[in-house]
């Protein structure tokens, strides 16, 4: 539920921004398409970030027991 809303909200914001920019600059559907893709990327980014947040809050037990902290951030 949480990951789903993060993803969809970003796509909606991206597409909405593109649509408004199109209305303003009168540039056909192009900006909306571009911003839709940007929104998709932002949605994936949101999902990855909140999943990382969840993992930090409650680390997976086996990985945490074997190797405490040997990869990525901090």
């Amino acid at each position: 539920m949480r990951l789903g809303t993060e993803f969809i909200a970003a796509i909606l914001v991206g597409a909405g921004m593109g649509y408004l920019l199109d209305l303003w600059l009168k540039t056909g559907p192009w900006l909306m398409l571009v911003m839709l893709l940007v929104g998709f990327a932002a949605g994936v980014l949101n999902v990855v970030r909140s999943a990382a947040e969840m993992n930090r809050a409650a680390p997976p037990p086996t990985a945490a027991m074997r190797v405490p902290d040997d990869e990525e951030d901090e």
Partner: peptide
């Protein structure tokens, strides 16, 4: 876009 989507999500 990721920042702007926060209030919506």
């Amino acid at each position: 876009v990721s920042f702007l989507s926060r209030p919506i999500s």
